[in-house]
């Protein structure tokens, strides 16, 4: 186990989560959420959960981001908080 790698990814995860929630542009927020999903997918691959990582890459980072962007496209990009 490469715990230092693990810790770096985990810290990036927290940063990505905070950014995704604090950006006022919803499109950017969805994109950062995609980054968050990819980071966590790396983490799971590293922790030996290959099936979970594969699913997260396909579902979390792929489809979730796409449908979120589709919604932002159909509604509005601006957010007050």
């Amino acid at each position: 186990m490469i715990w230092s790698f693990d810790i770096i990814v985990l810290i990036f995860l927290v940063i990505a989560a905070v950014i995704a929630l604090s950006v006022r542009d919803l499109l950017a927020s969805s994109m950062v959420l995609g980054i968050y999903s990819f980071l966590i997918c790396i983490l799971w691959a590293e922790m030996g959960a290959v099936d979970v990582a594969f699913t997260e890459a396909a579902v979390g980072a792929g489809v979730s981001t796409v449908i979120m962007i589709a919604t932002v496209f159909q509604t509005t990009r601006k957010s007050k908080d």
């Binding site: 290959v50 099936d51 990582a53 594969f54 699913t55 396909a58 579902v59 792929g62 489809v63 796409v66």
Partner: peptide, 13 residues
Amino acid sequence: PGGGFQGGVMLGS
């Protein structure tokens, strides 16, 4: 790694 879900998501995508 893989199976119905992952493959299904890829087909859908």
